[in-house]
């Protein structure tokens, strides 16, 4: 808790408490504390601002300034932070759950990079902010308030686990969807989404478009077909399957990395081909 307050400071806070959330404009404060000189009042307000007991807000209606008492927990949170720390904190707060990059922070605050790094370290140590790695820019760390949940764009949505693309998870879900569609004969998007939700495959909640991407991938894999029915779009097992093997790739030439460099009399030739050797080694 803040140090002891003088009587003038107490009086200012008293007025602020009286007006609650709306905040107190300077004129109102003057009116309420008419017994106090302007200088004494200013001294008290500055001191309170320094001690983080009072905060200065802008009234969006007429852009006038209003004073408001800082609630006790917040006051404890910000205790001992300087103006620069607060400046950085406020910019981070403004960036919401998208976070802000240190370069952008530098531009907005006009502070030097090493200084910002130091300030961020302090804020991080006090668990006021946290650093999050963005999936779109793996090398870029962004900062946001400690209590916020990072945005979907930052974490990559349901398909990322700890910033790594979770291919296994996707594979398992796709298999499950495919099996469900096979068993059901024909299924709609809602059916598949409901099935996944009921079975609880995913810890994160999957949105309809997440399930749609799973189904789309199954279609691209050539495993299912999309059909138009009266009740809407349905999915079923692919009627036309892609052949399991191809005569072209059954022979080593079909997937040979040096196919284009191979000539009958060259250094690479079918006669001396190591892939053939391996293939014909019974």
């Amino acid at each position: 808790m803040a140090g002891r307050l003088s009587s003038t400071e107490e009086a200012v806070l008293e007025v602020c408490r009286k007006h609650g959330n709306a905040g107190v404009a300077d004129a109102l404060l003057q009116e309420e504390l008419h017994h106090m000189t302007m200088q004494a009042r200013m001294m008290a307000i500055n001191s309170l601002l320094n001690k983080h007991r009072l905060t200065l807000l802008t009234n969006p209606a007429d852009e006038s300034l209003v004073y408001k008492e800082v609630i006790a927990e917040d006051a404890a949170k910000f205790k001992g932070l300087g103006t620069e720390e607060m400046l950085v904190y406020q910019h981070i707060q403004a960036s919401g759950n998208y976070g802000i990059w240190t370069k952008d922070l530098k531009m907005k605050t006009n502070l030097a990079q090493p200084q910002i790094t130091k300030l961020l370290k302090v804020l991080e140590q006090r668990s006021l902010i946290k650093a999050i790695k963005s999936v779109s820019n793996a090398n870029r760390k962004v900062y946001m308030l400690y209590e916020l949940e990072p945005a979907r764009e930052l974490t990559g949505g349901a398909w990322y686990t700890e910033h790594e693309y979770d291919s296994e998870f996707i594979e398992v879900l796709q298999q499950a969807c495919y099996q469900f569609i096979l068993n059901a004969g024909e299924a709609s998007l809602d059916d598949v989404a409901l099935f996944i939700k009921e079975k609880g495959f995913s810890k994160v909640e999957l949105r309809a478009d997440d399930v749609m991407s799973l189904i789309n991938c199954l279609e691209y894999d050539g495993k299912i077909d999309r059909v138009e029915r009266e009740e809407g779009e349905m999915f079923r097992r692919a009627l036309l399957e892609i052949p399991d093997t191809s005569a072209f790739t059954n022979v080593p030439c079909g997937s040979c990395p040096v196919f284009n460099d191979c000539t009958p009399d060259g250094a690479i030739s079918p006669n001396t081909c190591v892939y053939y050797q391996k293939w014909l080694d019974f």
């Binding site: 991938c217 892609i242 052949p243 093997t245 191809s246 072209f248 079909g254």
Partner: peptide
Amino acid sequence: EAVVRERFGALGLR
């Protein structure tokens, strides 16, 4: 498509 799958795997086919 079968050749693509053999050469570039299931993801290639996708």
